[in-house]
Nucleic acid binder design. Structure first.
Lengths: 244, 244
DNA sequence: GATGGAATTACTGTATACAATAAATGGCAG
DNA sequence: CTGCCATTTATTGTATACAGTAATTCCATC
């Protein structure tokens, strides 16, 4: 599996230099790629992320990789240890508690605003997201379902109109996904699959307080579904994980 | 014409500090130095931050400067425009509203926890911070006072025991400082200087609900003290300015 | 003069080379 | 065989060189 998978961008001459959209989008794509891989647990907590290995896989230099790793570290999906490199964050029980307490405070607090601002169109969009999530769960893709569930919560927060709080929720949700991926039960998402649909119902009718209470129970249910046990570590095969 | 001001004035270019400090701490010191300069408005909103210039001033290469700028950008103290470099963020009215709404939700929500966990020692520490803040205000150092006030709010949030929410508050406070520096009235800090002492009183007696309500009024007062006039267009109307 | 456009300059984006440090290896003594 | 120290290797940290792009200047043309 040495080089068969790396596409022709390996050493593309001037001809294809422009192929990578704008360098900026390329970086963003790589960022999302790694972020998704972590959240979907294809990169497991504790896994080391060597810079030149990633640089090889994505065909950019370590400079760009370092930038991406620093961004991931700021969102606490990866842990940066000085002189010893990056690894996928292994969330602790304390962190899990902090994250879910924060979600209680923020996401519940946003529900009245969301209920006030929600329109037909957005409700439909949310229902579609909930549908995809159910489907992923039915087809056994638990990790994907976890990520889709997080996307749902983030979209909801964005509908509040407060970009700052929405960004906080985004960070909390990606950390939650990591927590769920580690401490969650197999076959039990935490979110009951109909929960999100029920929530949309309350929001559609403008019942902010009802939605707030429901969100609170919903988050409590997710947190309660966690079981804290330790994971083993192993060396990830980056080629396989990111290979296309 | 009015050039962007020179960043961070330093008299002695050659410093002994460089060798003794670990590179990591050095970076952090530079980060704080720039962050403080922005929050205290020695670097004004809109000011360009050229990489070479900063590299010269601090005696490290552009690599390190870029890393620091990216971190500042993530905290939204600095705005990074692709291919056009970094500049001090110019907060908008919408952002100000988002930030203060977020503070209402989070800081008020934390008060009961803080009240529950606060001890003698921490109360004393907070009183000392409040004292320094008053002193800075009395001696006319408004910008310094703004930063010290932010420090107070951050320390308070840390006492809640939730590191995640405390970090959010930290970010909100530094952005608030920038907002205050831009939209605040001279000689009016927003925070009445005795407010913080009153708050400590409520917390000391474990009266979380009282503290929450007080914090809410406190933040509303700060926000109300802002004079939100929209900024000039990117192209100023010279006709109007120099007319007649 | 004013205007458009080429040449010049200034600055950012990216890769790479080199230095510093931690990990791994191997050899030697006990 | 085992533990410790020297040496080698692997990997990160930092500076620098180079390429690409926006801004500026300068000149020719109308």
């Amino acid at each position: 599996m040495s080089d068969a998978q790396a596409p022709e961008k390996r050493r593309a001459p001037a001809k294809e230099v422009k192929n990578s959209k704008e360098g900026d989008e390329r970086h963003d794509a790589i960022y999302r790629s790694v972020s998704d891989a972590i959240v979907e647990q294809r990169l497991k907590p504790g896994a080391r992320l060597r810079e030149d290995a990633l640089a090889d896989v994505f065909g950019i230099s370590r400079t760009g990789i370092r930038k991406i790793l620093q961004r991931l570290a700021l969102e606490q999906l990866v842990t940066l240890t000085p002189r010893r490199g990056a690894s996928v964050t292994r969330p602790t029980a304390d962190e899990a508690k902090d994250v879910f307490d924060a979600r209680q405070l923020i996401e519940c607090g946003l529900m009245p605003d969301v209920a006030r601002r929600m329109s037909e169109k957005e409700a439909a969009e949310l229902r579609e997201m909930a549908r995809q999530e159910r489907q992923a769960l039915r087809s056994g893709q638990q990790s994907v379902a976890i990520r889709l569930s997080a996307d749902f919560h983030v979209r909801l927060a964005q509908l509040s109109g407060n970009a700052t709080l929405a960004e906080f929720v985004e960070r909390l949700c990606s950390r939650s996904s990591l927590i769920l991926a580690v401490y969650g039960h197999r076959g039990h998402l935490g979110c009951e699959s109909h929960d999100h649909d029920d929530l949309i119902g309350y929001l559609e009718t403008g019942n902010g307080e009802r939605a707030r209470a429901f969100m609170s129970r919903h988050l409590k249910a997710i947190e309660a579904s966690l079981s804290m046990f330790e994971e083993e570590e192993n060396v990830p095969d980056l080629q396989q994980i990111f290979g296309e």
